[in-house]
Simulated scan of single mutants.
Amino acid sequence: MTTARDLTLVALGMPADRPVEQGDLSLALAGAEAIDLLEIGALTLDGDRVSPGSRAATGDRLLDEAVASLAGQGPHETIEDWLWRRGRDLAAAYVDDLQRSGLLTRPPRHGLQLWTSRSVLADSPERARAEERRASGEPVLTALMDAAGTGDAPEEAGGTPAGDAVTTILAAVGDAVTHLEALRLRRDVESAAFDNVWRG
């Protein structure tokens, strides 16, 4: 299992009254992929610029897609730009992947809804591992959970992620999520103003 799958399993296990924003989760998942790829040498970071590493195949379908998205990018984009590009609809891709793997069962979805309260996470070793990692307060997963807005980091969480590159990626995820929230607020304000005009 990868950090991104662990994060997806944790997010899907959140209570129904504490939903996770799909956009926030997608950006955090892209960050999780970047960290996993960095750790296996499939991605390198020069300052805040990303480029393909020496290892091309990961053995994981979605991570291989992430590697492919790095190829041919030149001049190399910033990590935040890559998060936005790679993160588009990434939460839906991970949910679908978990369903295909038998780790999530749910009724057919309608519209843009990713999952419903009737969704059921399988009682699997993968889920147990993700929950153990969450409960341990592992710094990378905890930081990604915070960025995704799960609000469920354990009290004993502590420590900082190792390495400047990982810290750079996590900071970029935080910045991207903050920017997305600002865009949401602006859209809400503009929508409210439009409604007021029509109400006269």
Rank of each mutant, 00 (worst) to 15 (best):
A128N: 10
L7W: 01
D89M: 15
G163Y: 01
A192M: 13
R187A: 12
G47W: 09
D48G: 12
D48A: 11
R186W: 05
V20E: 03
R187G: 10
L27S: 09
G72P: 07
V50G: 03
L114Y: 14
P107E: 14
A165R: 14
A135D: 07
G23T: 09
Q73M: 06
A171V: 10
M145N: 02
T167G: 15
T44E: 10
R127N: 05
G13N: 11
T105D: 14
R18L: 04
T3M: 12
G72T: 11
V173Y: 01
E126A: 15
R134S: 13
P75T: 02
V166I: 12
I169T: 10
G137C: 13
R184M: 10
R88Q: 09
L180H: 13
D48K: 09
D17W: 11
G23R: 08
L185C: 07
L103C: 01
E80Y: 03
S54H: 12
S26I: 03
D97I: 00
A91V: 03
R61M: 07
P75V: 06
S26L: 00
G149T: 07
P15N: 11
A91D: 06
R100E: 05
R129C: 05
H76E: 10
A57M: 09
T2I: 02
R186C: 07
R106S: 07
R186E: 15
S101E: 04
I169L: 12
H110I: 15
G53F: 06
G31E: 11
G149F: 07
E155F: 14
F194V: 11
E33F: 00
D81M: 15
A92K: 13
L121K: 02
